[in-house]
């Protein structure tokens, strides 16, 4: 699944570790989500959406 996580993170000038800490996951998890190797669970997807104040489908798209 494609996502805009890397772009959103870069817009806020956050490192992967910073984003990982804010989401309470490992830096490796953030990297895996950004590169599309790992799809986050629904609770984590909601946490990501709340953190960026967006809807889930604005960040994740399975048709990109």
């Amino acid at each position: 699944m494609r996502n805009r996580l890397k772009v959103l993170r870069a817009e806020r000038d956050w490192s992967q570790a910073e984003l990982a800490g804010r989401l309470d996951v490992s830096r490796q998890a953030v990297n895996a989500i950004e590169t599309g190797k790992h799809d986050p669970s629904l609770p984590l997807a909601f946490r990501i959406a709340r953190l960026f104040d967006m809807r889930i489908e604005e960040i994740f798209d399975d048709e990109l």
């Binding site: 956050w14 490192s15 570790a17 910073e18 800490g21 490992s26 830096r27």
Partner: peptide, 12 residues
Amino acid sequence: SAGPGEVRTRQR
């Protein structure tokens, strides 16, 4: 860099 997220990452 010592944002709140990185502090939590280090605690983790």
